[in-house]
Amino acid sequence: MNISLLYSLVGLALFSLGLYGLIAYGHLLRKILAVNVMGSGAFLILVALARGWRQTSPDPVPHAMGLTGLVVAVSATALALALACRVQETTGSTQLTEDGSD
């Protein structure tokens, strides 16, 4: 089996698992973690595709995109965690309410 293809499909599996976690769980920390799992899957696909199905030396442009994406994911996670802390302090709940009345 082609190794790039294997990595792409593993990345796809991670992405799908993360998306399920994002939808299915209410706890904000779980949602943030789920988005990170999704992101890891996307980066894995990007790096796998950079190698191409048969190319020996990888395309550096998707690698650079992955590196950029990692940094953006880290900063977005940090901001999301700060916001989640704020939600917990303000409402006393670790979930967002359905009607958004708060």
Binding site: L5, S8, L9, L12, G52, W53, P58, P60, V61
Partner: peptide, 18 residues
């Protein structure tokens, strides 16, 4: 998965330009 599998083997790439 179908989209990934249907990508051309040596599709457009910026490798040569880089």
């Amino acid at each position: 998965a179908w989209a990934i599998l249907s990508l051309p083997f040596n599709g457009p790439s910026l490798r040569a330009q880089v």
